[in-house]
Simulated assay, not measured.
Amino acid sequence: MTSPTATKRVCFQLVVRPELLDEYIARHTPVWPEMLAEIAAAGRRNYSLFLGDGGRLIGYYETDDDEAAQAYLANSEVAARWEAEMGRFFVGLDGRPDQAATPLTEIFNLHDQLTAAQAPVTASENESTAS
């Protein structure tokens, strides 16, 4: 597990309506500059979207405080306009895409596990493993 103060990795899933895939892709090539600025101002970074078969969309970003980032974007006029335009692209979505996407649970991260494996063993850990 990561510490509560560590960067949080967030992954989510949505489904784009197959008949609107070309338009959805075009809308992201490029995204409005003011929306890009809002995403950054919200504290989201290393943000990517990946498109799979059947319109499956996987999003990923990193943030130090996802609740604060969500609140910032929920109150942003620019994000409200963007999300109002994007809502029609998704299947089975209730609400704004940025607020209603299905989050995925992280079960493995290479960096975290390598770091944990290289952490020095403390005296109390040595005593418990020696029993």
Rank of each mutant, 00 (worst) to 15 (best):
F108Y: 13
P97A: 04
R96K: 13
G55K: 02
A6C: 08
I39Q: 12
A41Y: 04
N75Y: 00
T115A: 14
L57I: 01
A116S: 10
S128D: 11
A100K: 03
A42S: 08
A71M: 03
D98L: 06
P103R: 14
T129G: 08
Q118V: 04
F89A: 11
A26V: 07
W82E: 07
E19H: 07
G87W: 00
K8L: 14
D22A: 12
L104G: 14
A40T: 13
E23W: 03
P33H: 03
S131H: 14
A40G: 02
A119M: 06
S76A: 01
D94S: 15
L93Q: 01
E23V: 06
D22F: 06
A40F: 07
S3Y: 11
L20M: 11
A123Y: 08
A80E: 09
R88Y: 06
L104N: 02
P103Q: 14
S124F: 06
S76T: 01
L14F: 11
A69C: 10
A117V: 03
N109L: 12
A69T: 00
A69D: 02
R44A: 12
G43N: 02
I107P: 03
Y47K: 09
V15N: 11
E19L: 00
T2R: 15
R88I: 06
A117D: 05
I107H: 08
E67P: 00
A69Y: 05
W32F: 10
R27M: 08
A84R: 14
Y72G: 06
T2Y: 09
D22V: 11
Y61F: 12
S131P: 12
L36W: 04
T115F: 07
A79V: 07
T7F: 05
R56G: 04
G59H: 07
H28I: 02
R96L: 13
T2Q: 09
L110M: 15
T105M: 15
L73G: 08
L114V: 15
R27A: 05
W82V: 09
M86C: 09
T129I: 15
M86W: 10
A101V: 02
L73M: 11
E83K: 04
L21E: 07
F90H: 04
A74W: 02
A116T: 09
D98I: 12
Q113I: 13
T102A: 14
P4C: 09
A130K: 11
N126M: 15
L51A: 02
G87L: 00
S128T: 09
P30T: 06
A6Y: 09
I39M: 13
G43S: 06
N46D: 15
E62D: 14
E85I: 00
I25R: 14
L14N: 01
N75C: 00
T5P: 06
E34I: 00
R9S: 11
E38C: 08
L73F: 01
D112K: 04
S76I: 00
